[in-house]
Design a binder for these strands. Sequence first.
DNA 1: GCCGTTTTCGGCCCGACTGTTTTCAGTCG
Length: 575
Amino acid sequence: MPIQNAEIAAVLNEIADLLDIQEANPFRIRAYRNAARTVGEAGRSVPAMVARQADLDALPGIGPDLAGKITEIVNTGSCALLERLRKELPPGITELLKVPGLGPKRVRALYHDLGVQTLAQLHLAAQEGRVQAIAGFGPKTQQALLEATAARLRQERRFPLGVADETAAALLAGLAAVPGVARAVAAGSLRRRRETVGDLDLLVSLSGDSAVMAHFIQGEDGRQVLLHGGTRASVVLKSGLQVDLRAVPAQSLGAAWVYFTGSKAHNIALRRLAQEQGLKVNEYGVFRGAERIAGATEASLYQALGLRYIEPELREDRGEIEAARQDRLPVLVSLADLRGDLHLHTRDSDGRDSLEAMAAAARARGWRYAAVTDHSRSPAFARGLDPVRLAKQIDRIDRFNEKAQGFTVLKGIEVDILQDGTLELPDSILQRLDLVVGAVHHHLDLPRARQTERVLRAMDSRYFTLLAHPTGRLIGERAPCEIDLLRVLRKARERGCFVELNAQPARLDLADTACQMAKAEGVLVSINSDAHGTLEFNHLPSGIDQGRRGWLEKADVLNTRDLPELRPLLARTMG
DNA sequence: GCCGTTTTCGGCCCGACTGTTTTCAGTCG
């Protein structure tokens, strides 16, 4: 099995961690971390680039040395530097860096003074009171490490965006009501609409003196206070979700909102840009010397740096700053741009509502069309359709459409792509449909080459329209299948078919960087609810968020088209 | 270790909070 980008990134990150503990040049360490991030988010296969001897130096932050190291990692799975570092430090010591409160210096001290190499050893040392004996450590630090190691041994959690949204809304309402609070807003990964959220970042702007910090740490829900000062506090809610609150004067809200929205990489890039212009950016504003020249609003901060306003979903340092400078930022797709949905289920397979109810719910959203795409037989859980039942459904839809005014139910199927790449239903029935949504539900663990061939072969069917949930991942539960997405996209382009961005919160499949790749390859993305009941159309905002993170504009999304424009696109794939 | 429309050498983001220190280092975001 060829090595993946993520594995290369892991090697580079481990090198950075070990160098950090050895107190190497911090800028050298940063270079390894930047390279890890670049590779991890490259959006194309770095091993493939190595194979065809493409110029790795062209990737940002990768020079001749790192290009050599990456080539070595691709060819051997590791590199000499890492092997040497692993001999100089105990295996697994990098685990300690993930403990909150521990950085390289303290990890080094723990190892040198106590011989601590693992989480379990650290936990024991804290229990036995040996940690506070080290210079720079005290009883409080020891107690914190005792609790942190215990929590870490129970494993970390990330929260679905929907849960974070609800919690944030409730907390913000409470904060906004505190006297002296001008505005209370969400920042952080929640605002950037990441798939999951590790903690909540909230921000309040103050119009005068306020007891907002005291209010915040005194919630009646048993929240645990991690730290609190005059402008910043952190608590852990009973749910385990950590919430960080910052307070700033109203005149600094824009600068603070940019700063606390992040991402960290975006902030670093902004500050570097400011530096080049002789300016300084912090959470209080943009400064030329001692003079504050912007910061009341986000737009004013970007403007002071010569940039267009950048939407939060784009703030990942993936080219948005350069695009803002050149005034070629995408106009991101919005929920209102959708004209219909091309993937939903009814009671005829595993849906909960009737075809008529689903159509009515779709129509109530202001759409002019929706495609019914029940399962074919193979997913045993789904009571899927065989050719006879599908034929009956098709006839029912035809009768429904004759009566429906101003709304069209498109006839579709979510047909299983079998292990050998054939579609589960015969052409004789597929040819009667408006669209054929192909999906992989079984054997998600095939080797990369076979999984890729399977999907490419399915796309060879003249009736194939749209690839549903292309990687099959379930966030936090099931890793994406191994598949060469670039080849799949190029095939889709060649065949005139499409890929789905499935809006189910557990799927959000495609990922953001994959959306960017689809856009770059000129393949339209269909943002679909995959609704199994009328209420599940409410998942679409999650899909839109994900598409926006993937730089998608209205024109990049298949189902922003009205029916007269959509039909020929669907028909072309059927030919 | 990378990078350059001031630079191929000398830079590399910035501030708050904590715990431990008696003036600040380490960590975090």
